[in-house]
Design a protein around this nucleic acid. Structure first.
Length: 921
RNA sequence: GCCCGAGUGGCGGAAUGGUAGACGCGAUGGACUCAAAAUCCAUUGUCCCUUAAAGACGUGUGGGUUCGAUUCCCACCUCGGGCACCA
């Protein structure tokens, strides 16, 4: 009987499904292990060969842990809300739910073919009302909470109201927006609307005006991690900055905790570093400068991390959006300032980035007084100062800050060095080192000392205070879109007072069209009767990360209608032990999830503060993308060889429309409505596409389908091959070269059991050599799997099976454990052969064989003999032989004499079991 | 610009201070076969050489530590990723 993977795989997949082999049930008598994959967004492109890389690795680990006796939770679901389905809906009029369900069905079929050990009874879909009920519930909890800085945790808003009753705004140290201090009496005197507005400044889910990333192409705002290079990640449309009132999550309140608990996580250093940078803690000082426009004098606060350089301040700079701009612009400068402001306002985010190096700015006409020197310095306005960070105003020290330096050179402002011996004629000196000079009481100090001394001085004299700033911003939580979770919020007095809608879930209403309304309102404005109790409901929906922030908790108890997760289920499964997914979520999902979990932890709904204990980033399997070149401003496409004669935009084209880099023009026209009437400039009658190796993703249209690999080679070969390609964490382009080797290996494994049609397994006792091969494999596999080194495990299988084939071993006592060993990687063939050996339960129920140490118990081992570090020959010595004995034995050998003749032996180094190095002269 | 990570045969990669190139692919030669497929065996870093023996060189470049460095340290080069006026 040949190895017929098609029927074997079909047979056992059905058997596993029927017997619910991988169903996870809470069982306090057994240790738990929770292995999670980042659930996929079910795109129209389907699953590509890059997705399974991580899924296969986590599946291997899950199966391995089961064999080790753990009760493994290994669920899967779908991140089903999102922009692509909605964009598709706008284009085609199809309801996003319909396309999403179709895509999910396709994903499921594809996943099933690969033989994953998911517990499908726990599947979740973020777009299912029974699921998003709990997303909305968490939002309402955040709406009903504030962050107590003193305790460093979230608390119910009712406790804040009590505190205000007792002592006004001074009674608490809370994370909040801008609030005028008020007394208890003033609080009591406030009307309901005023109270509501004040509390809004404190809520963890709050509504507030902020500068947002507005994407006209998508008709919605986007979070910072949804924008890259000034373009939207989904769709690649330009993004501009715009002031809008939006729902936001007070993630910034958790900045310090998000930073601190990073240390205890078993994540890669690079990922932790990315999060640290994103949080961007900087410790500095706020300093108050007196500023005057010649008429009035104000106190203006700035933030700096280099107070020590305050004697080198030669000017001040305001962000164009700063509220100080209006106050400090003198009448004679008004016209010029206004024209600068309108110039800045016109630019898109992308233009601002592209022009990073060009220095622009304008003088306000006002002057500031240096609080330490009393010196008057001019106040300028420039876009290089950001309104959203610090106070939106800086003190400029051109000698020791390269940005200030560039500005000073551009506008001929003085540069004063305050560090001894540095040359600032060409560049600024930014390093925090050297000895201070021209700095009054700081003179002679080392820079590090001076920073502390200057901070102390500023605080003592009441000129400012120490301050910690974070780059992490609050998350903008509204999207002006249809296909997302509706906010359970309604507005009682028109738009004034948002109130919670408690009868969850608040289901998404049906609407006819998915575009924004004619008035430019979000699509939900099209819904008939989108009201509660006669009052209007919120019309925006939640962003993509809402549904993915707590899904790992829902898997613990997916059918519970009374709680996100029951305390019992949560106490058993606790948190994710192993999380596998891509790095692209480093500053999005993985920050939001940690925030969300900490919030639920503060309120006592979950028992662990961190959601993901160990995290492995699988590398991306890259694809080979193809491009077409559109002439700017037209719908005409020019072939690769001729494109340099035109001004073109490079556009990704689906690799399925391209054969051997030649575009199928008819298929291309049919691909997208906007290309239906495209025209082409051909070379030699063909349209030649460009290509590049890049990330395999639906947006690059370079997806390779794993189904084809399963058809040709089988799922077990696909699994082994993806692991064999290289380390899981490493990125590599997809390449089918080499897959034949894996296929050969599995057939070789099969032939240990079958000789043509005959089962040739025998009951005889295994020989020492056979046991050695087996136990070498057990030891190696155990070590490698624990280290996530799956490619070397596959090599170890090949070696073991090669050895057993050479030994002609067909003994059940060897083959049975061998089958268990290979089952995490190639579960179908293992299951088949496991049953062939007479077992009735799944191989999953077996135990991972114990390594008995036998092969290392041999009495001799091989030493490499080196002279001055160069290895010359090898020699087998008894294991029991001591270092000195081994040294003299080796020196007495004729082979050794050949090298020592005429030389003096200075030293002999013996590393037991490994090497004898003889130092000669 | 700043912060990470990586550079090893024709290719994917192995080796975390101790015989560099495991394992696989590809290639070449051979066995079986009328033939093919499949399978099996041998060779396969470079140089010197008819071949072999023996040797020399060899893990991006240059230095260092060490009896011994792909591995540790310093500097540089190249590639990949992240952040990008964050004061």
């Amino acid at each position: 009987m040949d190895y017929d993977f098609t029927s074997i795989e079909r047979k056992w997949q059905a058997w596993w499904a029927e017997n619910k082999t991988y169903k996870a049930v809470e069982d306090p008598s057994r240790p738990k292990y929770y292995v999670l994959d980042m659930f996929p967004y079910p795109s129209g492109a389907g699953l590509h060969v890059g997705h399974p890389l991580g899924y296969i690795a986590s599946d291997i680990y899950s199966r391995y842990k089961r064999l080790k006796g753990f009760n493994v939770l290994h669920p899967m679901g779908y991140d089903a809300f999102g922009l692509p389905a909605e964009q598709y809906a706008i284009q085609t009029g199809q309801h996003p739910e319909k396309t999403t369900n179709e895509n999910i069905a396709r994903y499921r079929r594809q996943l099933d073919r690969i033989g994953f050990s998911f517990d499908w009874d726990r599947e979740v879909r973020t777009c299912d009302p029974a699921y998003y009920k709990w997303t909305q519930w968490a939002f309402l909890k955040m709406f009903d909470s504030w962050f107590d800085n003193a305790l460093g945790k979230a608390r119910p808003i009712s406790e804040l109201e009590d505190a205000f009753e007792r002592g006004g705004s001074g009674a608490v140290d809370a994370a909040c927006g801008e609030v005028e201090p008020f007394s208890a009496d003033e609080w009591k005197a406030k009307g309901p609307k005023e109270k509501s507005d004040t509390l809004m400044q404190y809520r963890i889910a709050y509504q507030g005006e902020t500068s947002v990333n507005w994407c006209e192409g998508l008709g919605t705002v986007l979070a910072n991690d949804e924008v890259k290079d000034g373009l939207s990640v989904r769709g690649g449309f330009p993004v501009i900055q715009k002031k809008m009132t939006q729902w936001q999550l007070r993630v910034s309140a958790y900045a310090q905790r998000l930073l601190d608990s990073l240390d205890g996580l078993d994540w890669s250093d690079s990922l932790k570093e990315m999060q640290r940078n994103w949080i961007g803690k900087s410790e500095g000082c706020e300093v108050v400068f007196k500023v005057t426009d010649g008429v009035d004098t104000y106190d203006m606060t700035i933030f700096t991390t280099r107070v020590d350089t305050i004697f080198g301040v030669t000017f001040m700079v305001l962000a164009p959006e700063s509220e100080w701009v209006e106050k400090l612009t003198t009448p004679d400068r008004k016209e010029e300032v206004e024209s600068y402001l309108s110039y800045v306002k016109k630019k898109t985010e992308r233009e601002r980035m592209a022009e990073t190096r060009t220095v622009t700015g304008v003088f306000s006409g006002s002057y500031a007084e240096n609080p330490l020197t009393g010196e008057k310095v001019p106040v300028w306005i420039s876009e290089y100062v950001l309104s959203g960070y610090g106070t939106g105003a800086i003190m400029a020290v051109p000698a020791h800050d390269s940005r200030d330096y560039a500005f000073a050179r551009r506008f001929d402002l003085p540069v004063v060095s305050i560090i001894e011996g540095c040359d600032v004629s060409e560049h600024s000196f930014d390093a925090k080192e050297g000895r201070m000079c021209n700095s009054g009481f700081l003179d002679g100090m080392d820079v590090k000392q001076a920073i502390e001394a200057a901070k102390d001085y500023v605080e003592e004299k009441g000129l400012g205070r120490r301050k910690v700033n974070y780059r992490l911003r609050d998350a903008i939580f509204s999207r002006q879109r249809y296909w997302g979770e509706p906010f359970p919020i309604y507005y009682k007095d028109g738009t004034a007072t948002p109130l919670p809608f408690e009868e969850l879930p608040l289901e998404l209403p049906e609407i006819g069209e998915f575009k924004p309304s004619e008035k430019g309102e979000p699509p939900l404005a099209r819904a008939k009767d989108w009201t509660y109790d006669g009052w209007p409901l919120e019309k925006s929906t939640m962003p993509g990360f809402a549904g993915s922030s707590a899904y790992y908790l829902r898997y613990m108890d997916p059918h519970n209608d009374n709680a996100l997760v029951s305390p019992e289920a949560n106490a058993y499964w606790r948190s994710v032990d192993l999380y596998v997914g891509g790095t692209e979520h480093a500053t999005g999902h993985l920050i939001y999830s940690r925030f969300w979990n900490k919030f639920l932890f503060d309120l006592g709904y979950v028992c662990e503060e961190e959601p993901f204990r160990k995290l492995v980033n699988q590398g991306m399997i890259q694809g080979r993308s193809n491009f077409v070149y559109r002439i700017v401003g037209t719908n005409t496409f020019v072939s690769l060889g001729l494109k340099d004669a035109y001004d073109t935009t490079e556009i990704h084209v689906d690799i399925n429309l391209v054969y051997n880099d030649r575009l199928d023009i008819a298929a291309f026209k049919a691909w997208r409505p906007e290309y239906a009437d495209a025209e082409f400039i051909l070379e030699n009658g063909e349209y030649v596409c460009g290509w590049a190796v890049e990330k395999m993703s639906k947006s690059m249209f370079n997806v390779v389908n794993p189904d084809n690999v399963c058809d040709t080679y089988g799922a077990d070969t696909l699994r082994l091959y993806e692991m064999f390609l290289g380390p899981v964490e490493q990125s590599k382009p997809w390449d089918t070269k080499g897959i034949d080797g894996i296929s050969r290996f599995l057939r070789k494994f099969w032939r240990l059991f079958y000789d043509r049609d005959n089962l040739i397994v025998e009951d005889a006792a295994p020989s020492p050599a056979e046991l050695k091969s087996l136990h070498k494999l057990i030891a190696k596999e155990q070590e490698d799997i624990e280290n996530f080194s799956f490619n070397t495990t596959v090599s170890a299988f090949m070696i073991a099976i090669g050895e057993l084939t050479d030994l002609g071993c067909h003994k059940k006592a060897v083959l049975e454990p061998l089958t268990i060993l290979i089952s995490p990687f190639a579960p179908h063939i293992a299951e088949e052969l496991w049953h062939v050996l007479g077992n009735t339960e799944s191989v999953t129920c077996a135990r991972f064989p114990e390594y008995d140490g036998r092969f290392t118990a041999e009495d001799s081992c091989t030493y490499a003999v080196s002279f001055n570090g160069k290895t010359r020959f090898t020699v087998d010595l008894p294991k029991s032989m001591g270092r000195e004995e081994a040294a003299s034995h080796v020196l007495s050998l004729d082979k050794a004499k050949k090298y020592t003749d005429g030389h003096e032996v200075l030293k002999v180094i013996v590393v037991p079991g490994k090497i004898v190095n003889i130092v000669i002269r």
